[in-house]
């Protein structure tokens, strides 16, 4: 898994490429934690190049849902392919997280 973090105006975008599994998910968690620690209020996950996600990766997002609410952080995931999006849908996480098609929607959702 590779992470690439960029700032686009008020948006902090973390691009995730490759497989988010039990070994790599900790790095994604640390990236989100760092963004929160620096006070980012608009965190977007670019999943365009994400090839696979396991429960460890889902857990990174699930464990932060309440924190995003507490800190009034706008959080969205965009660009997932059908295969990866389906993994979120299996447990209904697409109802608990903002999962949208592209960057533009992620900014406005």
């Amino acid at each position: 898994m590779q992470l690439n973090e960029t700032k686009d105006g008020k948006y902090w975008i973390i691009a995730v490429a490759g497989d988010v599994d039990a070994s790599s998910s900790i790095h994604l968690d640390k990236a989100i934690e760092a963004a929160l620690q620096t006070g980012q209020k608009n965190i977007l996950i670019d999943g365009t190049k994400m090839q696979y996600i396991a429960s460890a990766g889902l857990g990174v997002f699930v464990s932060r849902i309440e924190e995003f609410k507490d800190k009034e952080v706008h959080f969205a995931i965009f660009g997932l392919n059908d295969r990866v999006k389906n993994v979120f849908q299996i447990l209904g996480l697409d109802k608990l997280l903002s999962i949208v098609a592209d960057l533009q929607q992620a900014k406005t959702t």
């Binding site: 429960s55 460890a56 857990g59 699930v62 309440e66 447990l91 608990l96």
Partner: peptide, 22 residues
């Protein structure tokens, strides 16, 4: 329960839920 996992901010516990649903 997924709602409990969310509320307790847990990172684990989802894997076997996925397996059971699949």
């Amino acid at each position: 329960c997924l709602q409990t996992i969310v509320k307790e901010r847990r990172k684990g516990g989802i894997g076997l839920l996925l397996v059971g649903n699949i």
